[in-house]
């Protein structure tokens, strides 16, 4: 049975987008397959790993558990929206400096979580950073350098 599609407008990385989507379209698939923004990763597909983390109206969410229609007229930010013209975002630069990635598959999700975290709070303890990362899994287990990268950023902010 073929059901009607829905016209969906949303703002992705500052640009208005208009899509025609099935009801069941996930935000993750709309971003990757309809808009070609493959920086957002498909990991566990059941809300556990955090690889698909994006921001909706500035809050970090799992795009594999949201229907695209739930973000109608809202602002979505993906990893592609962070870097400016040819310049890495400070969080990306900090991850590279600290060697906070191994295979790199979880990295976009960690960086989006970090973005939401640092937008909300400038100063954080290591325990707070680790708690904030509890929804993201790095299967290379490279957590130490990820935490280090984020703590370096919070110290930068404090200066």
């Amino acid at each position: 049975m073929s059901l009607p599609r829905h016209r969906l407008t949303l703002r992705v990385n500052g640009e208005e987008q208009e899509l025609l989507v099935e009801s069941r379209r996930l935000l993750l698939d709309a971003l990757r397959d309809d808009l070609g923004l493959t920086g957002t990763k498909r990991g566990c597909e059941e809300g556990v790993c955090g690889a698909c983390t994006v921001l909706v109206d500035g809050r970090h969410v799992r795009s594999c558990l949201l229907l695209a229609l739930q973000v109608r007229d809202r602002a979505v930010t993906t990893i592609e929206g962070l870097a400016g013209d040819g310049a890495l975002h400070p969080i990306q630069a900090a991850f590279i400096r600290a060697g906070a990635l191994q295979c790199g598959y979880c990295t976009p999700g960690f960086i989006m979580t970090t973005k939401a975290l640092l937008d909300a709070r400038a100063a954080l303890t290591e325990a707070e950073v680790r708690e904030a990362l509890s929804g993201n899994i790095c299967r290379c287990t490279g957590y130490a350098h990820i935490v280090e990268a984020i703590l370096a950023l919070t110290e930068d902010t404090k200066r």
Binding site: G47, H60, R62, L65, S134
Partner: peptide, 9 residues
């Protein structure tokens, strides 16, 4: 509850 991304939604 759950984790930060879930709590936001």
């Amino acid at each position: 509850v759950a984790n930060p991304q879930i709590r936001n939604v």
